[in-house]
Design a protein around this nucleic acid. Sequence first.
DNA 1: ATGGCTTGAGTGTCAAGA
Length: 257
Amino acid sequence: MKIATWNVNSLKVRLPHVLDWLATTQADVLCLQETKMEEKAFPHGELEAAGYRAVHNGQKTYNGVAILARTALDEVACDIPGFADEQKRVLAATVEGVRVVCAYMPNGQAVGADKYGYKLRWLAALADHLRDELQRFPKLVLLGDFNIAPDDRDVHDPEAWKDQILCSEPERAAFRRFVDLGLADAFRLFEQPPKLYSWWDYRQMGFRLNRGLRIDHILLSVPLAAACTACSIDKAPRKLERPSDHAPVIATLDAAP
DNA sequence: ATGGCTTGAGTGTCAAGA
């Protein structure tokens, strides 16, 4: 199974890129973030024509998450149970025995801002929920836009970003809490090229200068980590006309036992 | 320097992203 995540920064704008990328990679599951649309606008028809069914938890203008799959999506669940939140950031479904949790984690704006407090509360609520979910679903993958660069290797200029939003110690501690639940960062299971990131600012030639951050992640529970044979970030779509500012991350899992 | 791009909203210009 090939499973991937991509913050598309508007599915309306990026649908052609998504369809091209699915055709090229033949991914089995693709999680999207920032669809920025209501359910009635979601392009089910175009995706079905490409061989993918989809579930979506969306809203107008902001946020919005979707899971695309070539096979059935079962036990679909939206949001974080028990955590009051108007923002559509979480969607889960079971695909071929694998529990897929797609997340668009809050940005936080700036360390100390109100949105930063919301981000930390949100991350704690998701971790609490996943601790329970892992009991129900030992084969679980948490993937999406984490808006956290886990360590300095994931930052183009660690000095400039030190203690800044996306890199602060409380955010990194929240990331480690997911890891401590038994979820492994698939990207770091393998040797990787240096200075490979998943997001680059649209401004100031961020991509051309490779001023990026690795903030999009695929985290695998123990049995899935054991079955993982590859994980990479695909920079190709970031080079297209009118790209998303994020690149997709893709992992390969051996055939399910 | 709170800027520098991009998107969605909505038609002038702002919020939000990261």
